[in-house]
């Protein structure tokens, strides 16, 4: 009897050896990085100007706004929600920033503070209504999409607001690094987002809520505040994205960022985030953003006709997701 137990214990211990970290990372990101590498290879073959520092740095400095949105969207998707209002909230915070700076002469930090406050508040309202009252976030944030866009037009009187150099520095490359502060902070947001998701109680609860809200409740955890906080974070990320876009354009554009919510969702889904909740990675979403941007820049450099651009972009999005699904099944099998 005793020996049998020992034997069983031994077997169990051997079986618990975890997969090596690098193997895990390889499995998790391998497919996405392959898609990205493939795109870069194809564009490099088509245009000798593509694989140049100038082009790659241009790409880097164009993605902060979408990156911020994708970070927030990943969290929202993980808790099983969706946030369609991000484009409008981006435009709203950009508008507030622009009007306060250009028309009232506020310093950037104060104007940015107010913009973040408003964006965070709108996100909180999204969360409070959809989570607190159990209304699908799809419809709540769709409402916010319209409300925030309307508010943007009110704030700007439907005029684009030119701000100029006070805001430009944030979106323009620092001479020594050739990378913009916006890009660096966006990358920081990705790292922090991934850390929060995998290494904090908050992140763990988000995954749990998205997997099975009722099981979380029956585990004696109050899920509502966490889910609302996620929407608030998404709002704040819109504020950051608003700053990034405003600084890149030196202008607050009330018509800006229409439809960007779909690009953000696409980036997350390309990165393997489940629309059903419970599964996702901020880093993967960031790779999704890179794939979308590389595609856009590459196609523009080759000068592909507009219609073909859309066809190719759509196809690559679907194929990237398909490839990821296949990778998933394969790794489940082996």
């Amino acid at each position: 009897m005793e020996s049998r137990k020992d034997h069983a214990g031994f077997v169990l211990r051997v079986r618990f050896v975890k997969q090596s970290k690098w193997l895990q990372i390889g499995i998790q990101y391998g497919g996405l990085i392959a898609v990205l590498a493939l795109l870069i290879a194809v564009f490099s073959a088509c245009s000798k100007n593509f694989l140049q520092p100038a082009t790659l740095l241009t790409i880097a400095n164009q993605i902060p706004d979408l990156t911020f949105l994708a970070v927030g969207m990943t969290l929202v998707l993980i808790v099983g929600g969706i946030d369609l209002s991000v484009g409008s909230l981006l435009a709203l915070s950009s508008a507030i920033l622009g009007v306060l700076m250009a028309n009232y002469g506020w310093p950037i930090w104060a104007a940015f503070g107010i913009a973040m406050l408003v964006a965070g508040l709108c996100g909180t309202i999204n969360g409070a209504i959809s989570v607190g009252w159990g209304i699908p976030s799809f419809i709540v944030t769709l409402g916010m999409l319209e409300i925030a866009r309307g508010a943007t037009k009110v704030v700007t009187s439907s005029q684009s607001v030119y701000i100029g150099s006070q805001v430009e520095w944030f979106g323009q490359p620092i001479a020594s690094l050739r990378l913009s502060p916006a890009f660096l902070i966006a990358v920081l947001a990705v790292i922090v987002g991934q850390f929060v998701l995998t290494r904090t109680v908050f992140g763990r609860y988000c995954v749990a809520i998205g997997t099975n809200k009722e099981a979380v409740r029956m585990s004696g955890i109050r899920a509502t505040p966490y889910a609302i906080a996620v929407f608030a974070i998404s709002g704040l990320m819109c504020g950051m994205a608003g700053l990034a876009q405003t600084s890149r354009l030196s202008t607050a554009d009330p018509n800006g960022a229409v439809g960007i919510e779909l690009a953000a969702i696409a980036a997350c889904v390309i990165g393997g985030t489940s629309l059903m909740g419970g599964r996702g990675s901020v880093v993967s979403s960031f790779i999704g953003v890179l794939i979308i941007q590389v595609l856009q820049t590459g196609l523009a450099q080759i000068g592909v006709s507009d219609a073909n651009k859309q066809i190719i972009t759509g196809s690559v999005i679907v194929l990237a997701v398909l490839l990821d699904a296949l990778r998933n099944r394969l790794s489940h099998r082996s």
Binding site: L38, V42, I302, V304, S305, N308, K309, I311, I312
Partner: peptide, 12 residues
């Protein structure tokens, strides 16, 4: 994917 992209660049 490869096919589509090369189709894209060809058509351009």
């Amino acid at each position: 994917i490869i096919g589509l992209i090369s189709f894209g660049s060809c058509s351009s």
